[in-house]
Design a protein around this nucleic acid. Structure first.
Length: 333
DNA sequence: AATTCGGGCAACCGCATCTCC
DNA sequence: TGGAGATGCGGTTGCCCGAAT
């Protein structure tokens, strides 16, 4: 057998994180930047395994995370992307930069699945296709489907990417979460909440003095978030939602959402792209770059998928696709 | 008011993939 | 080039809380 799970080690703590642990973790990351998770428990004295630290950071403590209610727009994107990509939550999350894959996965399992099922039972026939399509794709068959019906897939993703451009966020889409108050929803109890303020202060400090750690992909992304937040002059408590504002979201997706924008922004060699596209296999090349887009500079390299989409005039029929019903989306497969 | 039930979500587990030596 | 370790990802579990009885 392989090596035992790191969490099996004696003395490794499991279960919910305490505010104190959060503060320790945030402080450490403030100083050293995210990454090198293996060294985190050792250097901080946290009785947690490295994976637990990483998970806690990426799903909860990381700045820029939007929590709480999903907007209609986000819902639509998730539904379409799930139909397209299957249960590749990390890939889906890369198109919803403020949401974590865990969040999206939970939302899908607890809300959207039911919604789709309701549709299925409510209107037999057409909508059944939606569900069956999703289920099939979930089983990993999306690769083959993408290959056999690749053009339709392009259109669908194009639509998903451009939804934001055409639909303003609903009025009730106000951020329901505070960026740096991770406990507001679940832990409104006094102890945890007050500790969250400490974390907020730590993060605030961090926002003003981002760490200068070696750049990995994820760290680059992280710094982008940091800078994006910092440049909006956000305060950890009052302006916590700055990075989660619709404006920020719009700016991100406006970059992706029109051909003209895309053509201006990306410097993709036509020949290279074509060659790449020709050799794409969905599971390898296509999604190899799924890091979150850079909020600050708009100089984000498009993912290969996006390049591929825009390169092929995938924007045709955007308007139709935008209004595409769930039934219609099923026909993509 | 007490108990039961179900939903939602944070966190864990194990496999897959990547990176380094 | 192969192996070991590190990291990423998706499925699943278990706890907490609110609604229902």
């Amino acid at each position: 057998m392989g090596r035992p799970p790191c969490c099996d080690k004696i003395g490794v703590k499991k279960g919910p994180w305490t505010p104190e642990e959060d503060i320790i973790l945030v402080s450490y990351i403030q100083e050293h930047g995210p990454g090198n998770w293996r060294s985190v428990p050792t250097n901080t004295g946290l009785l947690r395994c490295s994976k637990s630290c990483r998970l806690r950071w990426t799903n909860y403590l990381r700045p820029g995370i939007k929590r709480g209610n999903f907007t209609d727009h986000e819902e639509k994107m998730i539904i379409h992307l799930q139909a397209l990509l299957g249960n590749r939550w990390a890939a889906i999350a890369s198109y919803l930069p403020q949401r974590t894959d865990n969040d999206i996965k939970n939302y899908w399992n607890t809300h959207l699945k039911k919604k789709l099922k309701k549709l299925q039972t409510g209107v037999d026939g057409q909508n059944q296709d939606v569900l069956s399509a999703s289920q099939q794709v979930s089983k990993g068959q999306w690769e083959r489907r993408l290959q056999t019906d690749i053009h339709m897939a392009k259109q669908a993703l194009c639509e998903a990417l451009s939804l934001d451009k055409t639909s303003s966020l609903p009025a009730d889409s106000k951020p329901s979460t505070n960026l740096y108050h991770p406990y507001t929803t679940s832990y409104q109890g006094s102890t945890y909440a007050s500790s969250a303020e400490n974390i907020s202060r730590l993060l605030e400090k961090w926002m003003k003095n981002p760490s200068k750690t070696p750049q990995t992909n994820s760290e680059t992304t992280q710094d982008s978030f940091n800078n994006a937040v910092a440049t909006t002059g956000s305060n950890s408590s009052e302006g916590a939602a700055s990075a989660t504002t619709p404006e920020g979201f719009d700016s991100l997706f406006s970059f992706n959402s029109s051909n003209s924008d895309a053509s201006q922004s990306m410097s993709v060699d036509e020949t290279t792209t074509t060659t790449t596209t020709a050799n794409l296999t969905p599971d390898t090349s296509l999604f190899q770059d799924e890091s979150k887009p850079n909020l600050e500079t708009h100089q984000v390299p498009l993912t290969l998928l996006e390049k591929w989409l825009f390169d092929d005039g995938g924007a045709q029929g955007h308007e139709d696709l935008i209004n595409m019903s769930l039934e219609d989306s099923a026909t993509l497969f």
